[in-house]
Computed example of a mutant assay.
Amino acid sequence: MLEPTPSTGPLSAEAHLVISQAVPEDGAALLSLQHRLDRQSSFMLLEPGERPSSVEEIRGRLAAQSSAGSFDLIASLPRQHVGPVGWVSVEVAPYRRAAHVGHLVLGVDAACTGQGVGRRLLKAALDECRRRRLRRVELTVMVDNLRAVQLYLQCGFVVEGLRRTSLIRDGGSVDEYAMAQLVLSSGSESAVVDK
């Protein structure tokens, strides 16, 4: 089980970032953050109003997460009493042939971008993936989301392909990069070193 980890760094001195595994009791705050992210950023998959709004549904999903498969982490600033400011989800398929792969989604509140929250969430998620013995973490990112692409590259992800016209945003086609990182060595592969 992931223990809450206080972090220091680019955030202001009074800000004390804590990253922890989301539990059912976090459901309402997490859903509120997800809705806020959908409104703030055109880089999220879901547009405002498309995300389900059932707190019970998200609590049920969090309760069903085990110590070996999918998980959600939240980043909070408890001293500022603002609720979660970032979130990362790693979904693992329940099938034996794919149970070693996690699909990652990351979002950070616009008020906290550029302050290290996304990097710390991503590092915590990759550490948790290793602890859970996942071998591969993959994601998709819109090619014009330059800040996210740069973060993923700096943290050891590689571009494996281009998904042309994979999304429609504001009436226009958007390409996505398919990116991945091998996080746990298997046979002749080597584990990625944190950067």
Score class of each variant (00 low, 15 high):
residue 24 P to L: 09
residue 116 G to S: 04
residue 64 A to P: 05
residue 151 L to C: 10
residue 69 G to K: 01
residue 148 A to I: 03
residue 56 E to K: 14
residue 124 A to E: 08
residue 151 L to Y: 07
residue 131 R to V: 00
residue 106 L to E: 09
residue 25 E to C: 09
residue 104 L to S: 10
residue 118 G to D: 10
residue 70 S to P: 06
residue 157 F to G: 12
residue 135 R to V: 02
residue 109 D to E: 07
residue 42 S to K: 09
residue 164 R to P: 09
residue 172 G to T: 14
residue 166 S to P: 02
residue 83 G to L: 01
residue 138 E to S: 13
residue 2 L to P: 08
residue 35 H to M: 01
residue 57 E to W: 10
residue 60 G to S: 14
residue 90 V to N: 08
residue 114 G to Q: 00
residue 148 A to C: 05
residue 43 F to P: 00
residue 126 L to H: 09
residue 9 G to N: 12
residue 134 L to Y: 08
residue 24 P to D: 13
residue 119 R to T: 11
residue 107 G to E: 07
residue 154 Q to C: 01
residue 11 L to R: 06
residue 154 Q to P: 00
residue 90 V to T: 15
residue 56 E to T: 15
residue 112 C to Y: 15
residue 175 D to H: 14
residue 76 S to T: 14
residue 67 S to E: 14
residue 95 Y to F: 05
residue 32 S to I: 00
residue 88 V to F: 05
residue 152 Y to G: 08
residue 80 Q to M: 13
residue 138 E to G: 11
residue 165 T to R: 15
residue 136 R to I: 12
residue 150 Q to E: 14
residue 27 G to P: 03
residue 7 S to D: 11
residue 187 G to D: 10
residue 112 C to F: 15
residue 79 R to C: 09
residue 32 S to D: 04
residue 4 P to T: 06
residue 74 I to R: 07
residue 178 A to P: 01
residue 189 E to Y: 11
residue 127 D to R: 08
residue 173 S to I: 04
residue 41 S to C: 02
residue 121 L to R: 02
residue 137 V to I: 15
residue 101 V to T: 15
